[in-house]
Amino acid sequence: MSEVRLTVNGGEHVIDVPVGASLAHVLREELGLTGTKIACNEGHCGACTVQIDGVPRLSCIMLAHTVEGEVTTIEGLREHPLVDAFVRADAVQCGFCTPGQVVSAAALVAANPEPTREEIRHAMAGNICRCGTYPKIEEAILSWQD
């Protein structure tokens, strides 16, 4: 066990976790932030996406002790207009990948408020949705400011 300091959604946390624990594990198990999902646990699917200083990162393959910067999870983005845009567009089926999709999309629109379809496809290609909500995700991101 070793101490780790994390800033998550604006709050400071100092906790003891085993060396080698992933950020995703710490968020879910230690901080109770279960909106971040673990689906592959090896950085292939994007379900665990969080932002670090606004940049989307895969928290399941990031060691908690190496995190530098402010972590934003879906819990910190619940009031983001993208949430309503996803619901309106039906960009959610089983929903297991969806928080990660929203975190990636929020980083995209922060950097580029009016992305083109091509830009959306490029930025969101790391988030797998097995239910196939992709067309609706595209629509949600295109209409997030409505």
């Binding site: 279960t34 909106g35 971040t36 999902k37 999870t73 879906i74 819990e75 619940r78 949430v83 309503d84 996803f86 619901v87 039906d90 960009a91 959610v92 089983c94 929903g95 969806t98 928080p99 929203v102």
Partner: peptide, 9 residues
């Protein structure tokens, strides 16, 4: 239940 799922709740 869209909002619950999208918000990670």
């Amino acid at each position: 239940d869209g909002s619950l799922r999208v918000r990670g709740e």
